[in-house]
Nucleic acid binder design. Sequence first.
DNA 1: CGAAAACTTGACCCAACTCAACGAACGTGG
DNA 2: CCACGTTCGTTGAGTTGGGTCAAGTTTTCG
Lengths: 247, 247
Amino acid sequence: MFKDTPMSLMVRKLESRGPLDDADRAAIVALPHLRRTYEPSSYLVREGEPARKFCSFIESGLAYRQKLTANGARQIVSIQMTGDFIDFQHLFLRRADHNVQALTRIETIDIEREALQALSSERPAVGRAMWIDALIDASVFREWVVNVGRRDARTRIAHLLCEVAVRMRAAGLASDGGFELPMTQEQVGDATGLTSVHVNRTLKSLAEDGIITRHGRYIGFADWNRIRQAADFSDLYLHLDQTAPIV
Amino acid sequence: MFKDTPMSLMVRKLESRGPLDDADRAAIVALPHLRRTYEPSSYLVREGEPARKFCSFIESGLAYRQKLTANGARQIVSIQMTGDFIDFQHLFLRRADHNVQALTRIETIDIEREALQALSSERPAVGRAMWIDALIDASVFREWVVNVGRRDARTRIAHLLCEVAVRMRAAGLASDGGFELPMTQEQVGDATGLTSVHVNRTLKSLAEDGIITRHGRYIGFADWNRIRQAADFSDLYLHLDQTAPIV
DNA sequence: CGAAAACTTGACCCAACTCAACGAACGTGG
DNA sequence: CCACGTTCGTTGAGTTGGGTCAAGTTTTCG
């Protein structure tokens, strides 16, 4: 449809969220944009600051959303990966309510917030796709509340692994057999509300029971159904029926 | 501006999310709608079912969003009150990913989903207000991940009390001195990832320390600043600068 | 090759859970 | 209007999942 510009991944992503016509696609491709690289652990968004002028779309790499408590504990509230929009969550808000940090080195396409705001009303189909994207993010936040609130450590970690695996597969970034999880065990702890020590023990235990295999940070699944059950994982909340493969 | 119809609360609510002109207000008031009553603990939305045809706006009463784990544990993921829209979270999604239940008896205004979808693109200012509303809900979900993930029981419960107090005040439903919390201790536990027994002990301890007072389910604050600190509460995530008083 | 970061493991501890009993409040029907 | 069942709140005693502290070991990377 369009040649393979940096913007084509974004078009495909939005198209996976809702049907677009040629004019919609053209309007997206025509958006002025910059490409940018962020080093691991650098901040894209900082809690408390005015929502920034640019909205980032991840072309490659992983990032995470995070908040800190008064006593310095960190809670990661979501993982974002290639093909995810970072700033829809602040698109119409005045201030950032959380931090976004690069997990790996990431490349982004940055588009002016006002241009995206305008696009969302001028091209209703695009606006709808953006809505859906933001709503799916919200659904993931809800599932994370359940995960840290009501599941034990083993189930909780397995659930995180399932989510990342399924989303990576859906984005064409991983095979069925497993995936590279570029997180330290401390970061896994911050995402699950556990300590790194307990993450370590729990991963060991999951491996001992044959539910996962580990080689460095590569997580392998011998039997997807087994980990799915151990994780109490159902992909309903990811709304994959509104997400076509993008790569 | 408009006489006091059931819809005027909805107009005021949307207006608090973003500026509307007369035509926008008229379009909202013109929406065909039904009024409906739900008894306590009845379901408005059920996980797994197709997103329903009607979208509810709460005219009075409280509700909560909830998910269940495989072993039967319940996690409440948000509290919704008078002036809240329930179904924006599913406005463009095919299936419900969580349950919504009435906490007290609630009265709702129900509007057809398709009419709201159409309104959001035909009247961009209204669409923008709807976006903002949905984004603020998402911000609350993120804060809840932090709350259950990284705060201890006392801070966690205090935080819930602060959030409900601030939101009720913002909606004109409570005074500065305290508020009626129409939840059982088991429900408070389900909202904070604790057991009802521990909620009981923790409330007692907060009262013994003079941070709250209790009379039945009425929670009083002697010193707002004190509970704010005990709760590690900052209202940034509620985006009150984009929320005018509605009552 | 050396330093720093990440991972692993052991020993001990405690915040929150479980189980259980009882009291208070509340709605409902006779 | 009272009896009574049911739900809700309260408290005690004992248990445990996950935390803390600390000491290696391995990996990474400049």
